[in-house]
Simulated assay, not measured.
Amino acid sequence: MPTIELTFRAATEADVPGLVELIESAYRGEASRAGWTTEADLLDGQRTDPEGVAAVVRDPHSLLLIAERDGVLVACCQLEHRGEHVYFGMFAVRPDLQGGGLGKVIMAEAERTARTRWDAREMHMTVIKQRAELIAYYERRGYRRTGRMSPFPYGDERFGIPQRDDLEFELLTKAL
């Protein structure tokens, strides 16, 4: 497999439009079906919005990590310091680049950053429990299912329009 040459940096407010486009393309609508991370069968509407992404960029406890190849945005993830652990979210890889190992590289950098920046001992994430293939992907990366569930924010269209009434999030964790 060829080496994936990436540069990483913290997102700035100027990156917000491109980040929203990337995140939407990875999870929602027809464009998302080019990759395997689509939520289009579970949720309609938006995945995020400029205000939500800008809030993460401005949050002093968060880092929105950008991965670029030749100056082009190809992936991102949110890292939020929460004491002993760091929350991993807003993970997106361009749909046309999914399946080639890029996600593994991004996750490894996110975990390294969590350890070095905040001395984090554990990474946490929440995944829609119906996303079996995605949960299996994270399990292959060393995350474990906890069985701890939290409700989907039904009625808040900032997170999408559910296509079913049984959605909830499961907490996955990994020791760093």
Rank of each mutant, 00 (worst) to 15 (best):
L172S: 06
P162D: 04
D96L: 00
P153D: 12
V72S: 12
F8Y: 15
D119F: 13
P153A: 13
L63V: 14
D49N: 15
T113A: 09
A120N: 04
M123W: 04
I4E: 06
G18M: 02
E51F: 09
D165A: 14
E68V: 10
A120Q: 02
I106R: 02
R131S: 04
L65T: 05
G71E: 12
D44N: 14
R158E: 04
G142Q: 11
R121W: 09
V72M: 09
E133D: 15
E168H: 15
P60L: 10
D59S: 08
I66Q: 07
P153G: 13
Y143N: 12
G29Y: 04
L79D: 02
T48K: 07
A132T: 11
A120M: 03
R141L: 15
V74W: 05
L42D: 13
Q130L: 13
K174A: 13
E111N: 04
I135S: 13
A34H: 14
A108D: 06
G18K: 02
E133S: 14
R144P: 01
G142R: 10
T173A: 11
P60T: 05
P50M: 13
C76L: 01
L73G: 01
L65G: 07
A26F: 07
R140F: 08
V127E: 03
V20I: 06
I4D: 04
G99C: 06
Q98Y: 08
P151T: 12
D15V: 04
H61F: 09
R94I: 05
R69C: 10
K129P: 00
E13S: 11
M125A: 14
E5F: 09
P2Y: 09
R121P: 00
A136R: 15
V93D: 05
W118I: 01
A55D: 15
G18C: 05
E109R: 15
T116N: 12
M125W: 03
A26L: 04
E30C: 02
V105T: 11
L176W: 03
R140E: 14
G83M: 02
A14H: 03
P17Q: 08
E21R: 15
A175K: 13
K174G: 12
I128Q: 05
Q163W: 01
R164C: 12
G103H: 07
L6W: 11
G35N: 10
R121Y: 01
F152N: 04
V105M: 03
H61V: 00
G29D: 01
V20L: 05
S25D: 14
Q98N: 05
F169E: 01
R141M: 15
T7I: 11
S25K: 07
I66E: 04
L97Q: 05
M149C: 11
R148N: 11
R58G: 04
Y138C: 06
G89K: 02
D119E: 11
M149T: 08
A110G: 09
E30Q: 12
L73F: 05
G147T: 07
D44E: 15
V53K: 02
L43Q: 08
D166W: 09
A26E: 03
A11I: 04
E51W: 07
G147I: 08
Q78V: 02
A67N: 06
L79V: 03
T37V: 09
G52I: 00
E24L: 08
R115K: 15
P95T: 08
R82E: 14
H85C: 12
